[in-house]
Design a protein around this nucleic acid. Structure first.
Length: 783
DNA sequence: GTAGGGTTAG
């Protein structure tokens, strides 16, 4: 528990009140142009720079502005914070044109600022080209817009052009340029050029500017440069010290950072925050929590940064109690209006599994919102919270609200939305999300590309997943892992393995999840030797310790290949017999290889570990039933009944024209139930003529033959497939999702259905995809 | 200068 005794601040804070701060403010107010400025030398930049069209110089003394223009320019500046949609920006633009102000350079600059604020740097760039006399404001606004839009390289190119032919940059220009240097993956050369430029142009006394350079070096990991600059700075403020403390932390030199913290003349709340978030960056949550405690004991009051970070600690350590305490303090200290604090609260409650609390914080936040971009942060935290807690429907509903209310939908929200579509398996909405991604131009976002790739695969369209992967403009291990997993789950083991090899050739280092996929691919393809080799290489070459998921894949690998005894020995040798999931993998293998004895033994282990889990009772009961050992099967059912174990109801769903239709076994609640049942019966009649026989031996229940068959015939997946065929034109592929694993009889029947109706049928079950075409399934009847 | 919301897993 956190002792909430808040000590009075020991050191003066806020630089504006200190004498040093006042001199700083004076310096800040001093226009950069009054400093001695020698003529700038050419700015060296690596890479191909394409320069904008040359600036046309008009008369050196433009006529004084008219009142209407000045007023409109003022209006533009005032609205730049609140105008966040392209529609509003366009409206202002057309008002300007209609009023005959469209040709004025200052109006164009104002509109440029507005377009940048809406994230439409492309349109801002067009306006920039039209401006006749580009002043430092126009250049800086566009460079800043490019930096915010992630177009760092373009920002640097603009800066080079500005030095060559534009006005002299000011402090703000340079800090944007340094952001671009960091964004370009820490372009040290470009950053050093800026530093050189600052020194040559006599602005080295400007502590604010030098802090930007210092921060740049720290963020690029150029520790020696950071230390050097810090040492030579004539004037250092609290920010300089904090950047330096952060630099030590980034180096992993925690002792060094603490030493600096102790010697700093500015031990204010910011230094504490820097120290705490530095620990977080290294994943040292427990230590961060300790420092937080110390801060409560002896440090200054928490500010909004401290609360945000503290909430992240609570969510990483899943400490709901701590989170609630912080929430109380936030309300008491009046920080509830801060958008970051609120989104951290939403996130903390979601990650601790209390979505109810998240959504009440979210609903309460409407009173603080002002319709600006900050609003979208709370929205996107809430959308993510729903997705993390498996509530995809609510997540997508909230996304719809965002569009309706005109809240900015950014790449974060879209990533969560794509994940929601993946979970729900709804291709049409997924495609709509993808359209938004393309329209809003988020093609450089690796998170989003991975989520879209995964979405297509999980919605059954491997082709679109591949296309999204190929079209992605950025790449990383997660994107590769998504596509490898897509092929693996669609039964295309050879391609999955090939992609894994290709990834290594591209020098992308696989992570633990990549290995899960490639091992699972080996298991499904029956490649025992290869699987073993990957398992060994993972540990020896990549230093990844196997997790339960990896062990499960290995048991699956051996079990599926029929090496049941080896699989059993593996479980015992590796000391993983406490994990139910590995036994479940072995039980599945027993079913595939019809080894009743081993299955009974495995089931005993499982029942001990998980007495209330229905899955293994059902699996074993099916094995007995398939052998017509009705007594054993009924004994199992009695055990299930005794222990109050219930089977999770099987559900299948299909999306037709933007509506999801859900079915359960023998379910007649659908409005077209009568038509569906009669169509399915006639279809099964046709299948029987083709040679299909109901696998009545696979039914769980020991009932009369005819009754058993009718239960099988109306399993949820068959109903959904039948409805899909009835309600879509010929030749259109059918995509059905099921919450449990597909039943063996349905699997057999759907193979025949794909042949009888000349349809491709894609069925997603709880673990993988089955792609039926011409009487065959992509899983090779091996799942 | 520092904070927040996002992707891959039998």
């Amino acid at each position: 528990m956190l002792p909430w005794t808040i000590a009075s601040p020991a050191t003066p804070t806020g630089f504006s009140s200190s004498p040093r701060g006042r001199s700083l403010l004076r310096l800040l107010r001093r226009p950069i142009a009054t400093l001695p400025l020698p003529s700038p030398r050419p700015f060296s930049l690596t890479g191909n720079a394409s320069f904008p069209t040359p600036v046309l110089r008009s008369s050196p003394h433009p006529s004084p502005p008219e009142d209407a223009t000045t007023d409109f320019v003022r209006l533009l500046k005032a609205s730049s914070r609140s105008v966040k949609s392209l529609l509003d920006a366009g409206l202002l633009h057309s008002v300007a044109v209609k009023a005959g102000l469209g040709q004025d350079d200052r109006v164009r600059t104002g509109l440029l600022r507005i377009y940048c604020g809406c994230g439409r740097v492309d349109l801002a760039g067009k306006l920039f080209d039209e401006i006749r006399e580009r002043d430092v404001l126009a250049w800086t606004l566009l460079i800043s817009g490019r930096a915010r839009a992630g177009q760092y390289r373009e920002g640097l190119e603009m800066f080079a052009a500005m030095l060559a032919e534009g006005p002299l940059p000011n402090r703000f220009t340079l800090s944007c340029v340094l952001k671009c240097c960091v964004g370009c993956g820490g372009d040290l050369g470009a950053g050093k050029s800026v530093h050189g430029w600052v020194l040559r142009n006599g602005t080295e006394f400007d502590v604010v500017l030098l802090n930007s350079v210092l921060d740049f070096y720290a963020k690029c990991g150029a520790f020696a440069c950071t230390k050097n600059l810090f040492r030579t700075m004539n004037e250092k403020d609290a920010i300089s010290w904090n950047i330096m403390i952060g630099a030590y932390l980034r180096q992993g030199d925690i002792d060094g950072s603490m030493e600096l913290f102790r010697t700093s003349p500015y031990q204010d709340v910011s230094s504490w925050n820097t120290i705490i978030s530095g620990q977080m960056e290294h994943g040292l949550h427990a230590i961060a929590l300790q420092i937080l405690h110390t801060m409560v004991d002896m440090g200054p009051r928490f500010n909004q940064f401290t609360f945000s970070t503290a909430l992240v600690i609570a969510s990483r350590l899943t400490m709901l109690d701590l989170g609630k305490q912080l929430h109380c303090q936030i309300l008491r200290t009046g920080h509830a209006g801060d958008v970051f604090v609120r989104s951290s609260l939403i996130d903390m409650y979601s990650k601790c599994g209390d979505v109810h609390a998240s959504s009440s914080v979210f609903s309460g936040s409407s009173e603080h919102t002002d319709g600006t971009v900050t609003e979208s942060i709370s929205f996107s935290a809430m959308v993510a919270g729903y997705v993390q807690n498996g509530m995809s429907e609510e997540a997508l509903e909230l996304l719809r609200d965002m569009f309706q209310e005109g809240v900015k939908v950014d790449q974060f929200t879209l990533t969560s939305a794509a994940a929601a579509c993946s979970d729900a398996g709804i291709l049409e909405q997924g495609m709509q999300v993808h359209c938004c991604v393309v329209k809003l131009g988020h093609v450089f976002d690796a998170f989003l590309s991975s989520a879209i790739t995964d979405m297509y695969a999980k919605c059954g369209s491997l082709e679109d997943a591949r296309k999204a992967f190929d079209d992605s403009r950025v790449t990383n291990v997660v994107l590769w892992t998504s596509i490898i997993g897509s092929y693996a789950s669609h039964g295309r083991a050879a391609e999955a393995i090939h992609l894994f090899e290709q990834m290594s050739e591209e020098k992308i280092v696989p992570n633990e999840i990549s290995f899960v996929h490639v091992l699972s691919a080996c298991a499904h393809a029956g490649l025992v030797g290869k699987g073993h080799a990957y398992f060994k290489s993972m540990q020896e070459d990549h230093g990844i310790a196997p997790s339960v998921e990896h062990y499960t894949c290995m048991v699956d690998l051996l079990g599926r290949a029929g090496l049941l005894d080896r699989a059993k020995d593996f479980i015992q040798e590796e000391g993983i017999s406490n994990y139910p999931v590995v036994w479940r993998a072995l039980l599945s293998a027993c079913r595939v290889h019809s080894d009743v004895e081993m299955a009974s033994w495995v089931c005993e282990q499982l029942v001990q570990l998980e007495p209330c889990e229905s899955g293994h009772y059902i699996l074993l009961s099916n094995i007995h039933a398939s052998r017509r050992k009705w007594e054993e099967a009924s004994e199992l059912r009695r055990m299930m009944h005794e222990k109050g174990v219930r089977k999770r109801p099987g559900q299948s769903w299909i999306q037709i024209r933007n509506k999801v239709h859900t079915f359960m076994v023998g379910d007649k609640s659908h409005p077209e139930a009568a038509e569906i049942y009669s169509y399915l019966e006639s279809l099964i009649g046709r299948l029987k003529e083709m040679g299909y026989a109901s696998r009545t031996d696979l039914v769980l229940h020991d009932v009369e033959e005819e009754q058993r068959e009718s239960i099988l015939n109306f399993h949820s997946e068959k109903l959904a497939v039948a409805y899909g065929i009835m309600s879509t034109p010929k030749g259109i592929p059918i995509r059905v999702m099921k919450n449990l694993r597909v039943c063996a009889d349905c699997h057999e029947a759907i193979k025949y259905i794909s042949q009888a109706t000349c349809r491709e049928i894609i069925l997603r079950d709880a673990y993988r995809f089955h792609r039926f075409s011409n009487g065959k399934c992509s899983c090779g009847d091996y799942w």
